[in-house]
Design a binder for these strands. Structure first.
Length: 930
DNA sequence: AGACTCACG
DNA sequence: GACGTACGTGAGTCTT
């Protein structure tokens, strides 16, 4: 038979906490019900766990009855100073019993005992019967009961707590907690304790001496101090305190254990209660069917599944999406109700709607929230007003909404869920809002499914794949092309359907992804690498980098002149004018008209005119080819960089704000768009001038910190190549070392070839590819590869093992556990398969490098702050490089911190057998910092 | 929309 | 015998 699992709900404890954490709400009868709402939402959440693995089979709500207990007989001052409960809480106490009855749950209270004692008694009885117990409470006294088979569950923080939690919070094991509590006392309950001893000292003493009696016995021999005197003087108070905090676990059971069996939750009484109280969001969900919970019996499958540490998603079928259940929030009362619902659930999905895709300039138009399936709303704040004749729809003032939401979004006890929260964080940061703690479903999806045959991790696709649901398309709401309107002009009913659906879908995706993260081993990379990076990236985007418009404009002019001159020369050489940018026309001129050799290529049958062909023709003496190459370079630089970049300068900040994607590159790298600041020229002197346009504010400098050869170092570690490892450890030039090993001699030529081969290895080499790069025969290239494998044993083993692993399990992994899937690794077509194999060889190396720099970025802010360097700003990431702007005077101190953080970024999760090297440069511009 | 080319790591 | 030649990106231009 399945393991019985008893949930004991500390109802009295909960109601006080809910009362203080939730905004005041009133029911249709005008009675205050904020705490009742929180309590109801909590029971709802517990009910949703029925049937889940580790979910309850038995449940009871335990309440205090009366105020006089046996502890008062023991000590008349016990709880003597406790103020009477607030006026508007008192009438809510009986309603708690109504709520409990509405869920058809037993409600247990016993005169003369506190709820804690009843809980302790049932816990002991259940353990004796071989059951598991979960105590739903956050009361520290109850933590004494934690033991194997007994945990605590804080529904507001959505946290399960075991012995580790007690150890972390109090520094002792649960069985020693009573002694610690006795020493430290409790001012709220008026447990005296020993004066001058707080939690830290109490834990230290108990750890050192074992228990309270031993501490008291040892006191006279302690070195003279106030503490020693206090321990001696107040030893009797300490002993009394010990008895007061002791939980009484040997009462007679008011109800037998079997009476607590859960049989399911009949809908009718629950519906009547919810209607009476006006709890609309919960009613919506009841209609949806989420609460029609099956009778509880743990299935074998459920019992076998590993229990996630957080609340399990609803095991019963979730209600299909019903847009008619969404609410448009236009009154303060309604907003309060949603905020209370979020507090009650401990989780809320959020999405912002704006009038632009550019998060750094977008204006907030509305916010949607979801607290459960179909329990979603839209709060318009900026609709209308774009047309002076149009009437603005009724909506809450922006400031009101911001002020009400700010505490919720920063509240530790409510998890915020969003799809691409980086965007919302950036938009809301301008209103002084911080979002924490949070989960981001786009990042979760990426960490689970990178590389799987999905087009991406966007919400529309995720909803289709995981929820079998088609979301309202954005363009169906705002139109497209010249008829497109701003979201601010969308009528509220349409806006609500669209926006609330986004929040609803986001929360549903979360319930799917969250347990998958644990089951599929993606929690580490998600929680330690990618999720903490989200706010870091949001801040970098918001900071931007200053760009010298005049410098770019001057370059544009110079490039234009160069382009014009080359155009004239090229047309003269061709004997006719033509569009040089058209590969078709260029091919016709070069190969048909001028008769140069170089065949057709590609399925289109067009001539190839790329850089390798033109270089070759140039080497053979074709003047026009050289000119076309120069023309192309200048055109590229002008159109893609000098012109486009000027247009990207934000008029308000005078800086360029790129957007980073955390989910764009399959390997885990970031990518940069609008504009892409990860491909600013550097390789040619002409292109490099563009980097000089990226400058620091007066009095500041740009600092660039690069990992040196990080991918080769990782290859040396991961493939375990002794010769390479030694070379890196000794600080040798790695390409020289390779040249020495392969060719027996080091000169410019052999070093260049060695460098090519080193990179080729990282990318999954083929003899033809290497042959083309080195302009040698395939046989000669094959010899070289064989020699490489011979000199660097480990490489070929790594390659074979990586491909094997990818084929067997479908994915590769980085040192930090990031997965990249390779569905095509079993493709029937050889070239497809080989392509996947090469990518699979590269992914663990490129991905580990990405993990490392991401961890450096996450740690950088706190490390700089700890060093008092809060004026140092991280601006850009370019795969193996971080770019900062900082006051000139901070250069020395900041360099040291940056180097330490970057070089140590892998630890302690991963211990590398090669050192990570970082090169740092500074200057007035990015160009000068290299 | 897709091919081509080319900028970066 | 044909395939198509190194991994990962994003943007601009031309063509369909």
């Amino acid at each position: 038979m399945s393991q019985n699992h008893l949930y004991l709900v500390d109802g009295s404890g909960y109601i006080f906490r809910a009362y203080h954490q939730l905004p005041p709400l009133t029911n249709p009868q005008g009675q205050p019900v904020g705490a009742v709402y929180g309590y109801t939402a909590m029971l709802w959440k517990l009910a949703a766990e029925l049937g889940a693995a580790e979910g309850p089979t038995h449940m009871a709500v335990i309440l205090d009855k009366g105020s006089h207990t046996f502890r008062n007989d023991m000590y008349d001052q016990y709880k003597a100073h406790r103020p009477p409960p607030p006026e508007d809480l008192v009438p809510q106490f009986p309603m708690i019993r109504d709520a409990t009855r509405a869920f058809s749950l037993p409600c247990i209270e016993e005169a003369g005992f506190e709820a804690d004692d009843i809980i302790a008694t049932y816990t002991r009885a259940a353990i004796a019967a071989g059951w598991h117990v979960t105590i739903v409470s956050s009361d520290k006294d109850l933590m004494q009961l934690i033991q194997p088979g007994v945990d605590m569950y804080d529904t507001m923080k959505n946290e399960r707590r075991g012995p580790d939690y007690v150890m972390g919070k109090f520094g002792v094991a649960p069985e020693q907690l009573g002694d610690v509590l006795a020493l430290m006392g409790d001012s709220v309950d008026n447990v005296p304790g020993v004066p001058g001893i707080g939690p830290k000292t109490a834990a230290k003493l108990i750890t050192e001496y074992g228990d309270l009696e031993k501490v008291l016995a040892a006191a006279p021999d302690m070195k003279p101090s106030k503490m020693r005197d206090n321990l001696i003087e107040h030893s009797e108070m300490a002993r009394l305190s010990r008895r007061l905090v002791e939980l009484k676990s040997d009462m007679a059971l008011p109800e037998p254990l079997d009476a607590l069996t859960l049989k399911g939750i009949p809908e009718a009484p629950l519906r009547a209660f919810l209607e009476h109280q006006g709890f609309k969001a919960l009613l919506n969900r009841l209609s949806g069917g989420a609460a029609k919970v099956a009778p509880t019996s743990l299935t074998q499958d459920a019992a076998a599944a590993p229990a996630p540490p957080m609340a399990s998603p609803v095991a019963a079928p979730v209600a299909p999406i019903d847009r008619s259940a969404y609410e448009t929030v236009v009154t303060a009362d309604a907003l309060d109700r949603w905020i209370a619902a979020a507090h009650g659930e401990g989780i809320v999905a959020i999405d912002t709607e704006t009038d632009s895709l550019d998060s750094t300039s977008a204006r907030l138009v509305g916010i949607s929230l979801a607290t459960g399936p179909n329990a979603a709303c839209y709060i318009p704040v900026g609709h209308g007003g774009t047309d002076m004749f149009a009437e603005k729809p009724e909506q809450l003032p922006l400031d009101t909404v911001i002020e009400k939401l700010r505490p919720l979004l920063a509240d530790d006890s409510v998890l915020k869920v969003g799809q691409n929260l980086k965007y919302d964080m950036t938009v809301l940061a301008r209103h002084g809002i911080t979002i924490a703690p949070f989960d981001d479903t786009i990042v979760m999806s990426f960490d689970l499914d990178a590389g799987k045959s999905l087009a991406g991790h966007g919400m529309d696709e995720a909803a289709r794949v995981h929820l079998d649901h088609i979301c309202i398309a954005f363009k169906d709401v705002v139109g497209s092309g010249k008829n497109q309107i701003s979201f601010a002009e969308v009528p509220l009913d349409k806006a609500t359907a669209y926006a609330a659906e986004d929040a609803d879908v986001t929360l549903r995706l979360w319930t799917i992804f969250k347990p998958r993260l644990h089951q599929e081993g993606a929690t580490r990379v998600y929680e330690l690498v990618d999720r903490p990076l989200v706010p870091v990236i949001a801040t970098m985007e918001r900071t931007g980098i200053k760009v010298d418009r005049d410098h770019l404009s001057r370059l544009s002019g110079e490039f234009a002149d160069g382009i014009a001159a080359l155009e004239t020369e090229i047309h003269a050489l061709a004997g006719q004018p033509f569009a040089i940018g058209s590969t078709q026309q260029l091919g016709a001129i070069l190969f048909d008209k001028l008769g140069l050799k170089g065949g057709k290529k590609g399925k289109s049958g067009a001539y190839s005119t790329d850089v390798t062909i033109l270089e070759k023709l140039k080497a053979e003496g074709s003047e026009i080819s050289g000119k076309v190459l120069d023309w192309r370079q200048l055109s590229k630089l002008k159109s893609t960089y000098t012109d486009a970049l000027q247009a990207q300068i934000n008029p308000v900040t005078g800086r360029v704000h790129t957007s980073y994607s955390l989910t764009g590159a399959q390997t885990g790298r970031l990518s940069s768009t609008d504009p892409n600041l990860q491909n600013i020229p550097i390789r040619t002197e002409t292109g490099r001038q563009i980097r000089h346009a990226f400058i620091a504010e007066p009095g500041n400098v740009i600092l660039a910190a690069d990992y040196s050869q990080i991918e080769l170092r990782l290859a040396a570690h991961m493939a375990d190549v002794p010769a390479l490892r030694e070379a890196f450890a000794a600080g040798e030039d790695i390409h020289n070392r390779t040249a020495q090993e392969l060719f027996g001699t080091v000169n410019r030529d052999t070093r260049g070839r060695a460098k090519t081969i080193n990179f080729a290895i990282l990318y999954g080499i083929s003899r033809w590819g290497l042959a083309a790069r080195l302009e040698i025969g395939a046989d000669e290239a094959q010899d070289m590869i064989s020699r490489y494998y011979e000199r660097f044993p480990g490489i070929s083993v790594y390659i074979n093992e990586t491909i094997e692993k990818a084929r067997a399990q479908g994915y590769t992994e980085t040192l930090f556990g990031r997965k990249t899937w390779f569905p095509r690794i079993t493709a029937p077509l050889q070239h497809e398969r080989q392509g996947a194999e090469r990518a699979a060889i590269n992914a663990p190396i490129q991905g580990t490098s990405a993990d490392i720099i991401k961890r450096a970025m996450v740690r950088m802010g706190p490390a700089l702050e700890a060093a008092g360097l809060d004026r140092v700003k991280m601006l850009l990431q370019v795969h193996d490089e971080l770019v900062f702007e900082l006051p000139e005077g901070d250069v020395e101190a900041a360099s040291a911190v940056i180097r330490t953080v970057m070089e140590g970024a892998a630890e302690p999760m991963v211990k590398l057998s090669v050192p990570l090297g970082v090169e740092i440069g500074t200057g007035p511009s990015w160009g000068a910092a290299h």
